[in-house]
Amino acid sequence: MPYTGKVVVDGPADVHELTDLMISKVAVGPMENNAYLLRCRATGEQLLIDAAADADTLLGLIGEDGIATVVTTHRHADHWQALDAVVRATGARTHAGRHDAEGIPVPTEVLLDDGDTVTVGRVPLTVRHLRGHTPGSVALVYDDPHGHPHVFTGDSLFPGGVGNTRGDAEAFATLLHDVETRLFGELPDETWVYPGHGADTTLGAERPHLPEWRERGW
């Protein structure tokens, strides 16, 4: 079946099969977080984005091949509840944004800055630092040489708006600026967006609404 990005807690993974990369998306409770397993087709190496919860579900998805890397998109607790268990079971190296690492109780081995590269096998992912939802939130961009880009946005960008800034006008302005300049300003409309919760979207579907988001302030 074609990939839709629609998953539910305790339901099966949805798999997006690209030429060089396989992306498996699952939803885990209790806050219906999305976790993404990336697998390099050439080497079989795997990377997990957000060990959010339900370690058994995530380890079942990972399988016997294990993971080399786990990236935590930001410091909020619903994105790292299973991180300790997953790291203990797999020995994966932990990555997180430099300015959020102190808020993640599992030690971060690799501190990420804007423009850094994280690799899964032969596949490079570019780090984009998106301030506002948290000080050190990061997104990962895969610029597929065989198609359009793909971006994993954590809680910084969703269908219908940017992440929650809890009524902080300055934080909202900062997040909207970073999302506009580092994602919308550099990537095409075809870019597929994989958020930290809920359904996927594309930059093209969201781009016309940027003025509306700015006007409403959230």
Rank of each mutant, 00 (worst) to 15 (best):
M1A: 10
P2D: 13
P2C: 04
Y3F: 15
T4V: 06
K6S: 14
K6P: 03
K6Y: 15
V8H: 07
P12K: 12
P12L: 06
P12N: 08
D14T: 01
H16S: 11
H16M: 04
T19N: 02
T19L: 03
D20M: 14
L21H: 11
L21F: 06
L21I: 04
M22L: 07
I23F: 03
V26G: 01
V26L: 00
V28C: 02
M31Q: 10
M31V: 09
N33R: 15
Y36A: 01
Y36W: 08
L38V: 05
C40A: 10
G44K: 07
D50H: 13
A53P: 04
A53Y: 13
A55L: 01
A55M: 04
D56N: 07
D56P: 03
D56K: 14
L59P: 02
G63I: 10
I67W: 13
A68H: 08
T69R: 14
T69N: 08
T69L: 02
V70E: 01
T73G: 06
T73W: 03
T73Y: 04
T73P: 02
H74C: 09
R75M: 12
R75F: 14
R75K: 13
R75I: 03
Q81C: 03
A82K: 02
D84L: 09
V86A: 07
V87C: 05
A89I: 03
A89M: 01
T90I: 07
G91D: 10
A92W: 00
T94A: 00
T94C: 02
H95I: 02
A96G: 15
R98A: 08
R98H: 09
H99D: 09
D100G: 03
I104M: 07
P105N: 10
V110C: 02
L112R: 05
D113S: 10
D114Q: 00
V118Q: 05
T119F: 02
T119S: 11
T126M: 03
T126H: 10
T126I: 10
R128I: 00
H129M: 06
L130D: 06
R131S: 06
G132P: 14
H133M: 08
G136Y: 00
G136A: 07
Y142M: 04
D144V: 05
D144H: 09
P145W: 04
P145T: 06
H146N: 11
H146K: 12
H146E: 04
G147D: 14
G147V: 07
H148Q: 11
P149T: 09
V151N: 04
F152D: 02
F152Y: 13
T153H: 10
D155R: 04
S156L: 01
S156W: 02
F158M: 08
P159I: 08
G160Y: 15
G161I: 10
V162S: 12
G163E: 08
N164F: 13
G167N: 15
G167S: 14
A169S: 12
E170A: 15
E170F: 13
A171C: 07
F172G: 11
A173E: 14
L176R: 13
D178P: 01
D178H: 12
D178I: 05
V179G: 06
F184C: 01
E186P: 04
D189K: 01
Y194C: 01
Y194S: 03
P195T: 15
P195N: 11
G196T: 08
D200R: 15
T201W: 05
T201Y: 09
T202C: 04
L203Q: 09
G204R: 11
E206I: 11
R207V: 05
H209Q: 14
E212K: 14
W213N: 14
R214T: 14
